[in-house]
Nucleic acid binder design. Structure first.
Length: 365
DNA sequence: ATCCTGCATC
DNA sequence: GATGCAGGAT
């Protein structure tokens, strides 16, 4: 057993890195499909998929994605719609669009090799400082910290870091502390395991509500535990005001059960995704709808971070040529059978709506 | 720096 | 029904 280095490190954080590394080797996750590789493409893909998405869900997508796009060149060369189709169901589609753009930049500007430093990685679309740190640590052994939500929880608790993370200065200070906790220069080969260990602690031990402190390798150096209320960390004030908006959706369905969808513009809400034509008012929809009986479906609310979107679906019979007049922008549209639209990038509420419609079969119409 | 985003989870 | 996340846009 090695004694903690005397000096150099404050007594408040004795050998955090060593404890994490040792614990990871015996208790961490070491057999996920994106582990045990130093291929930046694979690591990058997994990190992007794991943003806002649980491991269990990503497992089902990761291999399919790799099969279809085995390397960054294949991904860069693919049509965006193919990428979105494989992403279909994962949500947060800006990740998929950034992923695609990033692949193209790596191919065109970096000769098909991911750059090997945090700084350069973080300059790529979809890669922030934390994701860049993870890739750099896993693939290049760079001494770079990560600070995603899970790790933020671990570190604020261990350190008893109680400053309000809504303040940029506090956030900066925590990054600084994260750097100080990294394995020492003479343990550089430990970077991948250390990084993975922090992730594993955050995901499995240092949970938001019920941390399993008894199982934690940091239990006897953790300030939050000593204080008795680890759940108090991290501290973040929130300021949220949500506005409301209403959209009327023109759902046209033909006899074969196909629906009319069009690709949304590349900027704005649901960029690049497929959606029925939307209108600001019932009247505007009426003006654009084909002649014939309209059926108002139950309205529902889709919640975005600071917008409550009230959606009013209106079912209309299909009429030849009628769909084209629905909107004048040059967004391409078309008729999609269920098997087809299920493979498209669809906003979550639209996917739900179409599934309901498909379930009800020919309900009316 | 500050605000904005789409969705899952709790 | 409220909150959080991790990145982008301005």
């Amino acid at each position: 057993m090695s004694a903690p280095a005397a000096g150099g490190r404050g007594a408040a954080a004795p050998d955090v890195a060593a404890r994490v590394v040792q614990w990871q080797a015996t208790h961490g996750r070491n057999h996920l499909p994106w582990q045990n590789t130093r291929d930046p493409y694979r690591v990058w893909l997994s990190e992007i998929m794991l943003q806002q998405t649980q491991v269990a869900t990503v497992l089902g997508y990761y291999q399919r994605f790799l099969d279809r796009f085995p390397d960054v060149q294949a991904l860069a060369a693919a049509p965006q719609d193919d990428v979105l189709a494989l992403w279909s169901g994962l949500g947060y589609y800006s990740r998929a669009r950034n992923l695609h753009r990033c692949a193209q930049i790596v191919v065109e500007q970096h000769g098909g090799q991911f750059p090997a430093s945090v700084q350069q990685l973080a300059a790529l679309p979809g890669i922030g400082r934390s994701t860049a740190g993870a890739i750099a640590a896993f693939c290049f052994g760079e001494r770079a910290p990560i600070l995603d939500a899970n790790v933020r929880r671990v570190l604020t608790r261990v350190l008893g870091f109680g400053d309000d993370l809504a303040q940029a200065a506090s956030e900066r200070a925590l990054w600084q502390r994260a750097e100080e906790l990294l394995p020492r220069e003479d343990l550089l080969q430990a970077m991948p395991r250390y990084t993975q260990g922090l992730m594993d602690l955050g995901a499995g031990i240092c949970l938001p509500r019920k941390p399993s402190c008894m199982l934690c390798p940091l239990q006897d150096v953790c300030v939050a535990r000593r204080e008795g209320e680890p759940e108090r960390y991290p501290v973040r004030t929130r300021k949220l005001k949500r506005s409301a908006g209403s959209w009327w959706l023109l759902l046209q369905r033909d006899a074969a059960g196909r629906v009319w969808l069009q690709r949304r513009p590349d900027a704005g809400i649901w960029a690049g995704l497929y959606c029925p034509p939307d209108f600001d008012s019932h009247q505007a929809l009426m003006d654009a709808a084909p002649a014939g009986p309209l059926q108002e479906l139950p309205a529902f609310v889709h919640v975005l971070t600071h917008r409550d979107l009230h959606l009013h679906p209106v079912l209309a019979p299909a009429q030849p040529g009628a769909a084209a007049q629905a909107q004048e922008d040059e967004s391409p549209g078309g008729w999609f059978a269920p098997a087809q639209w299920r493979a498209l990038g669809l906003p979550a509420p639209i996917r739900t709506l179409l599934e309901r419609l498909a379930q009800d079969g020919g309900l009316q119409n």
